[in-house]
Amino acid sequence: MATTLTEEQTPPIDAMEVVYQRPEALTDVPTHYCPGCGHGIAHRMVGEVIDELGIRTQTIGVAPVGCAVFAYNYFNMDFIEAAHGRAPATATGIKRVFPDRIVFTYQGDGDLAAIGTAEIVHAAMRGEKITVVFINNAIYGMTGGQMAPTTLPGMKTTSSPSGRDVEATGQPARMSELLATLPGAAYIVRRSLHNVREIRKARKAILTAFKVQQAGLGLSMVELLSSCPTNWGMTPSDAMKWVEENMVPVYPLGDYKVVDAVRDL
């Protein structure tokens, strides 16, 4: 049973050691994300990494269209809102004007793997020196849980109520595998947010992805498998289990492209 300190037993605030606080790279604004959504975890990790690298005032972020459309309210740095799927194109323009700044996009699967497929593919083909944080929850979240190119075979969504029929709609889009085939991509990995161990690995990958950009090696992307309890119709904890049991087999975790120079970072 947990013990509760009485008021007399609680040490004064200035005597306490701060062991956990909001990163400077995040604003003090409550997010609009649903309980159990992976965006909060991913935002925090990106913020921590930016603080760790000391690049907050040198970084420009690009927000997607989708649930993370308001990312610019939560990141404490210069930010631009791109049109649907166009974040890599917008990031390209900013990075080429300011090659010494750090430019990252933060995109969901509806943004990156559907309407913006051409933009991310060509940004990788061109070897744009940008970092992409790609949140894959296998569904269109903001618009109401419709089937996405990333939806699992047989998965029920509001627009595939009988489950995704792969004969009619194809197989899930594996963007990391696809982008890893392109010479301009320097670092393409897939991680997951379904438990603490995987979250720690994801944080390390995000750190590496930003370092890849600092070293000018090419496009870096971290795909993060994430949950959508609201549109999946599950509790947050069940949704995390669902990621592990159903998404990871379709989207194997791992390093899909790591150029040799990344090992020296």
Partner: peptide, 27 residues
């Protein structure tokens, strides 16, 4: 030389060094 417009400091995305962040959105 490419140059920033004189008013750009109030809106351009150059990195928020020494100022509050600028956000560009039409949402």
């Amino acid at each position: 030389d490419p140059h920033l417009h004189p008013d750009a400091a109030s809106w351009a995305l150059t990195g928020a060094e020494g100022r509050t962040p600028n956000v560009v959105t039409s949402l």
